[in-house]
């Protein structure tokens, strides 16, 4: 084995690069292939991520966070993966239930959805949710009844926002697990939610987790964005365009 490197195994700089970077750097090689240890670590992490996709958010967390729990049209995990259309919709009965039990016409409707990683919800929501509720309250925004959706896709916020006549909607949703972390959360926001709102009209902050954008910082950013959305009455590219108009004076 003549070309296994790193050739400078004891170089501090190489260690620094490898340690500091969330990517798999400074891993060396065996010929043109990865070294055995690197290869097996990678396969192990993939195995863990595969297992994480199949897990569920605990009832305890939903209760502890005071979320009103509903389910989309999806029945189980397999259907969730194969039928995104069902993960965007709620039944007529669920809509009825929401209208009976939740506040109507809030300025901000907050939704938590399991998405593709229940671990992202378990790890981030306990820190993020109180910051959001406080922050939005301080801006004088009227936040409706926080809702938890099982088997939810991003666009379920269009359906729920429309049913509750919300001015704006925020969904916190578990992202597809990566190998470095299965804890990454996204926040999607829309002004004037209604079924069929295109993605380009949504504002997103992604990579919310301890190793990316920490929940505390994400909370502040989300509050700022929602306040701006409500002020400019726009979201997504419309909001960016409104910013440009504003900048031009």
């Amino acid at each position: 084995m003549t070309t296994t490197n790193p050739p400078n195994d004891h170089d501090d700089r190489l260690d620094r690069i490898a340690d500091r970077n969330p990517s798999r750097l400074g891993v060396g090689r065996a010929g043109s292939r990865p070294r055995t240890e690197t290869l097996l670590e990678f396969r192990s992490d993939h195995g863990i991520a595969r297992d994480a996709v199949q897990s569920h958010v605990s009832d305890a967390l939903v209760e502890e966070m005071g979320l009103f729990a509903v389910q989309t049209l999806v029945e189980d995990k397999d259907e969730y993966l194969a039928r995104p259309d069902k993960g965007r919709e709620i039944s007529a009965e669920t809509a009825e239930l929401l209208r009976e039990e939740c506040q109507q016409s809030p300025q901000v409707q907050l939704i938590v959805a399991d998405g593709l990683s229940s671990m992202a919800i378990e790890k981030n929501i306990p820190d993020l949710l109180p910051i959001l509720l406080d922050g939005l309250d301080q801006r004088g925004l009227d936040v409706g009844t926080p809702i938890f959706v099982t088997y939810g896709r991003v666009d379920v916020m269009d359906a729920i926002g429309e049913e509750l006549d919300a001015e704006s909607c925020l969904v916190l949703i578990g992202e597809r697990p990566g190998l470095a972390t299965a804890e990454s959360l996204s926040a999607y926001m829309v002004y004037g939610p209604e079924r069929g709102t295109p993605t380009a009209k949504k504002t997103v902050i992604s990579n919310i987790h301890a190793g990316g954008l920490p929940p505390v910082e994400a909370g502040a950013e989300i509050v700022d964005l929602i306040a701006e959305m409500c002020d400019k009455q726009a979201s997504g590219l419309d909001l960016t365009a409104a910013d440009r108009e504003f900048a031009k004076g």
Binding site: P22, S23, R24, L25, V27, P34, T38, F42, D45, H46, E175, R176, P177, G178, L179, A180, T181, S184, N207
Partner: peptide
């Protein structure tokens, strides 16, 4: 190509 096949930002391989 990404480092060791693992894109830690887009969360895919």
């Amino acid at each position: 190509t990404v480092p060791m096949g693992d894109d830690v930002m887009l969360n895919y391989q």
